[in-house]
Design a protein around this nucleic acid. Structure first.
Lengths: 164, 164
DNA sequence: ATAAGTGCAAAAGATTTGCAACCTA
DNA sequence: TAGGTTGCAAATCTTTTGCACTTAT
């Protein structure tokens, strides 16, 4: 695809996302700053599950210097307005991922290679809500991670770490 | 059983548990120390999901002084040998609970009162294993927490914290 | 102009680690 | 006795916060 015909899907998405973020900020009398937009863009123009360090690296590489404190503060905002999801993965730094791209899903972590796989199962979702109902609770969210060990003999990925 | 007729269920359990821990330690050439046994007992003679601070308090109250570092080191051992389960609850200190008492279960956290409720659903368990199978992974463990908001009007527990 | 946001460095909170003294096997 | 274990304090690591300065509105 040349400079002419290339479909810039990401571009369109990004504008919508930014608008959503801006509306959120407007509603709470917050300000639209370069730092905030840059972090949103970074999260949505890369695929993966990022630690704060990884985000800082990514942004530094793209000439968007931003302080660690601002990353933390902005991630909070993005989580609040539903654009970013926070993953509490046991014994690892907290990871963050874009929340609108792929819809709701949970994660599988391979204990051999640390790979993170996303999954979604409607049955599972339904049962969870049912269980909450039994205790008179309204679903707010859930954390669900499956840890598995690779059954592929001599998996080439073994013991690599820091994956997506 | 007690000296005569009173059934001292806890007592019997504890001995078995200690034996299990001792075997584990023996196998890895570890030593059976008072601190280690005291922590095991503390976890099994109280019901709940404890933070390290809570464990230190409990032990101090029962004249079992033990250092924080040893608590951490011993918890690792207990988790390794399957006697204790580590709960990574989002945005709260890590909690630990006895692992053999009530069998496998996961947790519901009420976002209003912070209460922790245990649940178990065989269907849910089965589906999780199926999902892992799809990716050629053998189940190792899972983390599953449902966050719910209380639908009881004026729930008396509202906003209390630090619950079991 | 003014309230909000930013970076920096310090603070806080949880967990780990180095080391000398101290036990268990 | 020898090697593992303990407690303490120092070190790490992640995240939060106070503050003077800067910027969006």
């Amino acid at each position: 695809m040349g400079p002419d015909t290339k479909p810039e899907i990401r571009h369109v998405d990004l504008e919508q996302l930014e608008d959503r973020f801006k509306s959120f900020l407007y509603a709470k009398r917050g300000k639209v700053t370069n730092e905030r937009l840059a972090l949103l863009r970074t999260l949505y123009t890369h695929n993966g599950h990022f630690s704060v360090d990884q985000l800082l690296d990514l942004m530094a590489k793209n000439e968007h210097s931003i302080s660690r404190a601002t990353v933390y503060r902005t991630l909070d905002l993005l989580v609040q307005c539903g654009l970013v999801k926070k993953l509490a993965i046991e014994d690892r730094e907290t990871r963050y991922e874009s929340a609108l791209d792929s819809g709701h899903h949970d994660h599988i972590i391979c204990v051999d290679c640390n790979k993170i796989i996303e999954f979604f199962n409607p049955e599972l979702e339904a049962i969870q809500d049912d269980i909450l109902g039994v205790y008179n609770l309204k679903p707010v969210k859930h954390i669900h991670q499956l840890y598995g060990s690779c059954t592929v003999p001599n998996c080439p990925e073994k013991k690599k770490s820091g994956q997506t």
